[in-house]
């Protein structure tokens, strides 16, 4: 079966997170197992939230979402005109261990887990800027188990 491509455009608005996610989950269900859909959903929400919350200053700026599905694999690309995510932030997200000192809850960070979750729950993450646009692409495949 050849890959199927689907496109969606959303406003830069937190209230767009749920409908965009429901759109992606409906596309992913025939391609991935339920546990893999669940983890893709969280990775996607974290990526989209980052684009909306930390993206361009213009609230009317739109975000393009391109999803490609095939049996056992879903890739999703977010395209917008936001300033690039600093390279060191993405690198740090890949190394984030979620470990913390249980005896020092006061020092527990309240934020900063989103990119780490996105990386941990994706099989591939790529990021590039091109002609004033940033392109964040996640790939999720069925995992063993």
């Amino acid at each position: 079966m050849s890959p199927e491509r689907h496109d969606l455009i959303v406003r830069r608005d937190r209230n767009q997170i749920t409908p965009a996610t429901e759109w992606l989950v409906a596309l992913a269900r025939p391609a991935l197992r339920p546990d893999d859909v669940m983890e893709l959903e969280l990775a996607f929400v974290e990526a989209l939230t980052n684009a909306i919350v930390h993206g361009a200053a213009e609230e009317d700026e739109q975000i393009q979402i391109h999803a490609t599905t095939q049996p056992g694999e879903v890739s999703v690309e977010l395209v917008d005109c936001a300033p690039p995510i600093p390279r060191q932030l993405l690198d740090a997200a890949g190394r984030y261990s979620f470990e913390f000192d249980e005896n020092d809850i006061a020092a527990l960070p309240e934020s900063g887990r989103g990119l780490a979750l996105m990386v941990a729950l994706s099989d591939e993450v790529s990021y590039r800027t091109e002609k004033g646009q940033t392109r964040l692409r996640l790939v999720r495949r069925n995992r063993a188990g």
Binding site: T21, E41, L42, V45, E46, T49, I105, A106, L108, P109, E110, S111, R113, G114, L117
Partner: peptide
Amino acid sequence: FMDSSALGALISTVKRLG
């Protein structure tokens, strides 16, 4: 479904509780 921003709200709460 819950994401990291909602989790952050719970962490803020447990820190405020002390």
